[in-house]
C-alpha cells in the first residue's frame, strides 16, 4: 500500500506539489492524469524516492521513504519497477545486459538461468532475438518494451510508468498499453502510471486520479472520471480549451 500525506515540492520559486494526498491499495491499476508540467512525473518520482519532498510523507507499506537515506532506500526500491518516459536504457549495454542488470548485480543466478529469465521477460513484452542489440538500434516502442522487460524481470510488487505512450504512434502506444494491462493481470502488481493520453488512461486503469494545481482534484473509477461533468475534469479529458483560458501552456 502506498500513501502520500501532505506532499509539498517546489523547484526554486516554482511550486509543483501543494499538499498532495493520495492512497493506493495493493493490486490497484491507477492512472494519474493532469496537464503537462503539472507535476505528475514529479509525484511519481516521489513514490519511489527519486525526489525528496520539501515537506510531507510517502509511506510504502507503512515505511516513510522520506526518513531513509539512499542506501536504505535501495532495499525499499526492490519492491518497485519503473518504466521511464524515454525508457532510460543503459546505452553502453546490450538488450540482454540491460534486462539482466539486476540479476547480474545480485549474483544469484548462473549465466544459463539469466539467459532463460531474460528470454522469458522479452517474450512477455513480445520481443525475441534482440538480446545482442544495443538500445540505439531499437525503435522507440521497442526501447519501451525492453524497459518494461527490465522492470518486470525481478518480479516487483509495484510498477510505475512515466508517460508510457509518449512519443509513440497510436498503434505502438496501444500495444504498450496492452502489455501494461497484461503485466498487471498476470503478475498481480500494483500499477501506477502518469499520462495525459486519455486513450491510454482508459485502457490501463481501473481508477483515475487527476492532479490539478498541485493537488489531487478528482479521484474515482476510470469510467466515472472519464465521463465526469465537472468542468475542469471534463475539459481536460475531452481536450477542451476553456473559454477564459489565457495561455497555451
Amino acid at each position: 500500500m502506498i500513501e502520500v500525506r501532505d506532499l509539498w515540492k517546489s523547484f526554486g520559486p516554482q511550486p509543483v506539489l501543494l499538499g498532495t494526498c493520495l492512497r493506493i491499495e495493493k493490486g490497484e491499476a491507477v492512472v494519474i492524469i493532469g496537464r503537462s508540467g503539472g507535476g505528475k512525473s514529479v509525484l511519481l518520482k516521489h513514490l519511489i524516492a527519486l525526489l525528496q519532498p520539501d515537506r510531507g510523507q510517502v509511506l510504502v507499506d507503512g515505511q516513510d521513504l522520506c526518513r531513509l537515506d539512499e542506501r536504505q532506500l535501495l532495499q525499499v526500491r526492490r519492491k518497485f519497477g519503473m518504466l521511464f518516459q524515454m525508457a532510460a536504457l543503459f546505452d553502453s549495454l546490450t538488450v540482454y545486459e540491460n534486462v539482466s542488470f539486476v540479476l547480474q548485480r545480485e549474483r544469484r543466478h548462473t549465466e544459463a538461468q539469466m539467459r532463460k529469465l531474460v528470454a522469458e521477460a522479452l517474450e512477455m513484452v513480445e520481443l525475441r532475438g534482440i538480446e545482442e542489440k544495443k538500445p540505439a538500434e531499437l525503435s522507440g516502442g521497442m526501447r519501451k518494451r525492453v524497459g518494461l522487460a527490465r522492470a518486470i524481470i525481478y518480479r516487483p510488487e509495484i510498477l510505475l510508468y512515466d508517460e508510457p505512450t509518449t512519443g509513440l504512434d497510436p498503434v505502438a502506444g496501444a500495444r504498450i498499453d496492452q502489455l501494461i494491462h497484461r503485466v498487471w493481470e498476470q503478475l498481480h502488481v500494483t500499477s501506477i502510471a502518469v499520462t495525459h493520453d486519455m486513450a491510454s488512461a482508459r485502457r490501463i486503469s481501473k481508477r483515475i486520479l487527476m492532479l490539478h494545481e498541485g493537488g489531487i482534484y478528482a479521484d474515482g473509477p476510470s469510467a466515472d472520471i472519464l465521463s465526469s461533468t465537472d468542468p475542469v475534469v471534463h475539459n481536460f479529458v475531452n481536450g477542451i480549451v476553456p473559454a477564459d483560458s489565457q495561455s497555451f501552456a
Binding site: R77, R78, M82, F84, Q85, F90, D91, R105
Partner: peptide, 17 residues
C-alpha cells in the same frame, strides 16, 4: 549524459547505488 537521459534514476530504481 546518463543523468540527463534518466539512466542514473533508472539505476536507482534498479536498487543500485
Amino acid at each position: 549524459t546518463m543523468k540527463v537521459t534518466e539512466q542514473i534514476d533508472a539505476l536507482r530504481t534498479l536498487a543500485t547505488h
